[in-house]
Amino acid sequence: MTLNELEIGKTAKVVRLLGEGAVKRRIMDMGITKGTAVTLRKIAPLGDPIEVTVRGYELSLRREEAVKIEVA
């Protein structure tokens, strides 16, 4: 399952990051690395982007980026 498929309020651990280059590096730099717990907090009023909690702070990312994050 990917991060965008997570239910609101649920937490999962990062299994794998797909993609490469700037987007992947940015996601990792912000603390979403293998084994990290991520909680889906909410979805923006227009359906995109999404807000997650990771390492104790709030992060927003678009669905197109969230689909590159496999969680379990």
Binding site: G21, A22, R26, I27, M30, L59, S60
Partner: peptide, 12 residues
């Protein structure tokens, strides 16, 4: 060019 990632902190 490459799309800029929108991975953004939402500060407290």
């Amino acid at each position: 060019g490459e799309a800029a990632p929108f991975v953004m902190e939402l500060p407290a």
